[in-house]
């Protein structure tokens, strides 16, 4: 059994009222921001199930928006985020879908990237899909994510680049939609790597998307 911290029961320091519906929402937003890793003008949130039905009473809508704008879970501005935000167009949709987790959201940034995640309790979250690719990112590791045309040798090329930086890979996951189709890879790292590594990985043939995802504090 993995040892847990006593701070899993005497924290986080957060704005209320709910660790799953408020703090979890902020962290999902923060992860989406870190994954997109770029300026944006438009964001849409699709809230599912309990997020959709009881979210408004818990500030889930405010938390998600504050998160993508970079506010932390303990920032008291979250309460007034609607009057603070400018230059970003935001909208919400509310859905019921029993195939999804009770506290689930799709975050669509600039109509370009869809990031789906769940708030799994006590402020903990999981990003389980990015642009149609299954992921399992909980924000506890700096992560390098790339999407590419499925072909042999990609893992060794990428791990080689990271190894040269003497960075330890904590875990590595790959997936693809079909043989020779589009594939994704994400590597959880023990220490963050520089954005220059992203540029190097981008140079690999048939890689069409790379992002350096910072872990959550």
């Amino acid at each position: 059994m993995e040892q847990k911290s006593i701070f899993s029961v005497i924290s986080p320091i957060m704005v209320g009222p709910s660790s799953s519906h408020t703090a979890g929402a902020v962290r999902l937003g923060l992860m989406a921001k870190n994954i997109y890793n770029n300026d944006f003008a438009k964001v849409k949130f699709i809230l599912y199930n309990s997020f959709a039905t009881t979210g408004f009473g818990h500030g889930t809508d405010k938390g998600l928006l504050a998160g993508v704008l970079g506010y932390g879970v303990d920032d008291i501005s979250i309460k007034n985020i609607f009057s603070i935000v400018n230059n970003v167009e935001y909208s919400y949709e509310y859905m019921q879908d029993i195939s999804r987790h009770p506290n689930s959201v799709d975050i669509i940034i600039d109509d370009k990237m869809t990031i789906s995640g769940d708030s799994i309790g006590a402020g903990e979250i999981r990003i389980n899909n990015i642009n149609g690719f299954a992921t399992d990112i909980d924000g506890s590791y700096d992560t390098l994510l790339l999407m590419y045309k499925d072909k042999p040798g990609m893992i060794s090329m990428v791990s080689d680049i990271i190894q040269k930086r003497r960075v330890n890979i904590a875990s590595l996951h790959c997936g693809r939609n079909s043989k020779g189709g589009t594939a994704s890879m994400y590597l959880a790292l023990d220490v963050p790597i520089g954005d220059d590594v992203v540029e190097i990985v981008k140079q690999i043939d048939d890689v069409f998307f790379v992002t350096n995802i910072r872990k959550l504090k």
């Binding site: 005497i10 320091i13 957060m14 209320g16 660790s19 500030g59 008291i76």
Partner: peptide, 10 residues
């Protein structure tokens, strides 16, 4: 929506 410490929950 003030700042509190979840202990163990909010």
């Amino acid at each position: 929506m003030g700042r509190i410490v979840a202990c163990p929950t909010a």
